[in-house]
Design a protein around this nucleic acid. Sequence first.
DNA 1: GGCACAGTTCGGCGGGGGCCGAAACGAGCC
DNA 2: GGCTCGTTTCGGCCCCCGCCGAACTGTGCC
Lengths: 263, 263
Amino acid sequence: MPSQPRPAGSAQSRPRPPRSTPRPPRAADHGGSSLAALAALLADPTRAAFCDALLDGRAWTSGELARYARVAPSTASEHLSRLIAGGLLAEERQGRHRYVRLATPAVATLLEDLTAFAESGGTGTRPPRTLAEAGRLSAEARARTCYDHLAGRLGVAVADALLNRGLIAEDTGLAVTERGRAWLAAQAIELPPRTGRRGGRPVVRNCLDWTERRNHVGGALGEALCRTALDRAWVERIGSGRALRVTPDGGRALHELLGVDVP
Amino acid sequence: MPSQPRPAGSAQSRPRPPRSTPRPPRAADHGGSSLAALAALLADPTRAAFCDALLDGRAWTSGELARYARVAPSTASEHLSRLIAGGLLAEERQGRHRYVRLATPAVATLLEDLTAFAESGGTGTRPPRTLAEAGRLSAEARARTCYDHLAGRLGVAVADALLNRGLIAEDTGLAVTERGRAWLAAQAIELPPRTGRRGGRPVVRNCLDWTERRNHVGGALGEALCRTALDRAWVERIGSGRALRVTPDGGRALHELLGVDVP
DNA sequence: GGCACAGTTCGGCGGGGGCCGAAACGAGCC
DNA sequence: GGCTCGTTTCGGCCCCCGCCGAACTGTGCC
């Protein structure tokens, strides 16, 4: 029977701080309320699964996403409307189809950052949980796209090669070197215009890989490299997911140009 | 699209067994479920307000955060436990106080990215909603900290000055130039060790400003500049928020060193 | 026109979770 | 020891929201 439990009324004569406001202005709305609204969009497993699927950079229909996430079409429709209203997705109607894709590369960056933190920052390693997941992982772990750039072991290997050959440098910040610019020109790989200016898309961007726990190259450079690899058939997509396969031609090209030997 | 393992909501001639799969394998758990778990932590207005407060880079007690967000101490305690379990916050107990702070700079970066997107990416401009908010904004709009670097008009002005003087460059990626390195050495401003290496903190980082809609300088360089400014009393904190005041000495120093005239 | 199919709207259901107050715990202080 | 006060745990309330099926709209195809 320890201490007397707080003589109810007595206590001190504290004027009972704004205890009023029984229910109305709940949220102090100090700051971060718009953060909460954005996070709420991603806090639902189904909506998160949609975003994950759309991280392949392509446009999906409402029905495809519904089947992917195993929910009724009506449910998917409502989720998509919310994601679009929140500015995360953009839609394009064609006939009786509703195609959706990530609204901007900035959304993809945001999702990648969040995913990378969630996968690695939380508790450290997280092995695959189901057999199907393990199988899918092994394919995606080798090579995959990460919205519009290369990831997986291939992405990391390319990033390492670029660094080791002095085509990009990170001593004082991540940037394309003079040699790198010449190399890009020699390969006829060109960066999209209007990048690097204040507010524009960064040219080189570290993107933490959730399988390799290493950085690969994103940004405009990552996009240009991935686009080139697909255009020149160095890699091709496997099925409808994000996994990639390196073609024989691609293996040769990567070896000759960057010294990358695909495992 | 080959066979759907479990045709959840497809055919319409379902025999109506008491709702097969009453509730079991709801989530496809394809991908993004860990993303959802992370986002759920930030999806609550109260937890978001906590994070917003902690973005000043300092440690707050549980009670302080409860009063800030206008919730009962018990509620705050539960929220903090969840945020800590999720790896977003770190705690330090001192006597009967529980101090919490953002777990790592990476968390701050994540929060800043999300906030910037939420404030500007959503619908474009968003004027202050309340009178108190407007007043607070005017102070913070001039100069404030953004976790560990400078933001607001001051932050943007410093970033512009660094660019215009060729101390940093972004032609091929954001990086400190040779001149910039010399300038930093001349001012006896030193970057923390172990930055810039793969996986480490980036040296220079664009951070979109939600008041100016312009980029300011984050990363290790932003942290070093902000620390220097506080150490040498060029700026000082106003009250307990994130707002800063430029001291007379600071005004002179900023003008001489960078040509920045504080408005 | 009629059918098939993609998507949407609506009503209703059920569970999760945020909130609070009451009580317990424990550190500091006299 | 006894008190204060910051924090935590627990029980209970209630609202929010994700889910579905059914009905509806509108497109494309015969």
